[in-house]
């Protein structure tokens, strides 16, 4: 075997995958950048260099949309962390056998592999005006009228997103909890640490990288979200993703592109700040 082939081999092997990414990821995003400076005259776009598309973002309506997106992100992040951490903790520390841990983790994972659309539709018979939750609440006399905020509201959007994306928080946390040396916990116990102390001083710091990776997934999933906002928000809820989708629908590509670039920049900024606080390199 010649030395030149050996040095060349990895490049030959990565070529197909790299081509796919260049063609369908890098080039499209570069084109979004280019088109975001083009002119739009109401029905078609022409190559130019204008900042008008970006200026359009700094209007009250659009800024409000951005704020609303941050609100969704904050709520979904807190909810997925507060629900996801105990679930991962239970699986990692309270389920005795490895087979059972894997099986129960699989139970949590299966819904993620099925259709997001169906998973959202399935909330309708539960939360609608005549849905099961309202029927029960009125049946036991807790409310006189059906609660309107359950469906087609910001509440429903957050609920839908938590339901769809929580596995992205659980999986990395579960992974980092499973890697914690059990002898560390025994050592802490032997030295007289209480359960709360062990959690605060040993387990939480060691699972921080998992939290960071989970948070990064939540950020990227929620920031560009438009399907849940559309299906569960019922027209009133706004998000940047939905704004971009509406602009594309009316063929305003340059405006959509400018919004997408700002969205990408904001998302990257949040990710970089997460990485500043928490080091994930050990996890990779």
């Amino acid at each position: 075997m010649s030395e030149t082939w050996k040095a060349f081999k990895p490049y030959a092997l990565i070529t197909p995958q790299t081509l796919v990414f260049l063609l369908f990821l890098v080039f499209p995003i570069v084109m979004i950048g280019v088109v975001s400076f083009w002119e739009f005259n109401g029905y078609s776009m022409t190559p130019a260099f204008t900042l008008a598309n970006y200026q359009g973002i700094f209007t009250d309506v659009t800024l409000k949309t951005y704020l609303n997106t941050f609100k969704f992100l904050g709520l979904v992040w807190v909810a997925t962390l507060l629900i996801g951490y105990p679930v991962a903790y239970f699986l990692a520390f309270h389920v005795p056998k490895l087979e059972w841990q894997i099986l129960l983790f699989l139970v949590c994972t299966i819904p993620f592999w099925t259709s997001n659309i169906i998973r959202m539709i399935s909330w309708v018979p539960l939360l609608g005006r005549e849905g099961l939750v309202n029927q029960i609440l009125m049946g036991i006399g807790l409310t006189q009228q059906p609660l309107e905020f359950l469906l087609y509201s910001d509440f429903a959007v957050v609920l839908g997103m938590v339901h769809l994306y929580i596995i992205f928080m659980i999986a990395p946390i579960f992974n980092s909890l499973m890697r914690i040396e059990r002898s560390l916990i025994t050592a802490a116990e032997d030295l007289g640490a209480s359960g709360v102390q062990i959690f605060k001083e040993v387990i939480l710091p060691l699972s921080a990288p998992g939290i960071a990776i989970g948070s990064i997934f939540i950020v990227t999933l929620v920031m560009g979200e438009f399907v849940t906002v559309r299906l569960m928000g019922g027209g009133q809820s706004a998000s940047v993703g939905k704004l971009i989708q509406t602009q594309i629908g009316s063929l305003q590509y340059p405006l959509a592109a400018a919004n997408a670039i700002v969205l990408l920049a904001v998302t990257m900024l949040i990710i970089v700040s997460i990485l500043r606080v928490l080091d994930i390199r050990k996890e990779l």
Partner: peptide, 15 residues
């Protein structure tokens, strides 16, 4: 994996 998916869709659409 982590680029918001609407960017992929929009980008390919623009191309």
């Amino acid at each position: 994996l982590i680029v918001p998916s609407i960017l992929v869709s929009l980008g390919i659409g623009v191309v």
